[in-house]
């Protein structure tokens, strides 16, 4: 049957056509496409890998930054605490100092007042003495203006002396 016997002419044309198709496509067609697809695949794989690495790095950085942040926060707390302590200490010290100072001032003031008082008292005493002398003088003078009075006094004084 002619269907099952290959025709020599068609065999020839087929060999020629397929040979050319094979040659051209195997040289200029498929290798380029497959190569490019492979290259793209490599590129994508690399990009993915790079992205993954970047992600990991980012995660590391994030962790680190968090760590730094926590540290900073702790430091802040510590500094604040220290400052507070310092402040309290300083304030306390100042208070103490002030108290001491105040006490000293008070003491001084007291002493001054005392002295002033003493001086004033002494002054007053002498003044009073002078005054009383003057008054006494005046009174005496007045009282002793007449003879009787002078005699009376003398008598009185003598009484007194006698009494003593």
């Amino acid at each position: 049957m002619s269907l099952l016997t290959p025709d020599i002419g068609l065999l020839f044309w087929m060999l020629l056509s397929f040979g050319i198709v094979f040659f051209v496509l195997a040289k200029f067609g498929f290798p380029i496409i497959v190569k490019m697809v492979d290259e793209r695949k490599t590129y994508i794989d690399q990009s993915l890998e790079a992205a993954k690495q970047a992600n990991t790095q980012l995660l590391g950085i994030k962790e680190e930054s968090e760590k730094i942040l926590t540290e900073a926060r702790n430091e802040q707390i510590r500094i604040l605490k220290e400052a507070n302590e310092m402040r309290q200490k300083v304030v306390g010290e100042a208070k103490e100092q002030a108290q001491i100072e105040a006490a000293k001032v008070m003491e001084d003031a007291k002493r001054n007042i005392e002295r002033e008082k003493m001086l004033a008292m002494r002054d007053a005493h002498s003044q009073i003495a002078m005054l009383s002398i003057t008054i006494a003088e005046k009174i005496l003078r007045k009282n002793l203006e007449n003879k009787s009075a002078q005699l009376e006094l003398v008598e009185q004084l003598i009484d007194e002396v006698q009494k003593n």
Partner: peptide, 19 residues
């Protein structure tokens, strides 16, 4: 044979355009 030659040419052009 004619179809074969023609289809071969078309196939070559077709793949080369893609390439």
């Amino acid at each position: 044979a004619a179809t074969l030659v023609m289809s071969s040419l078309v196939l070559i052009i077709f793949i080369l355009i893609c390439a």
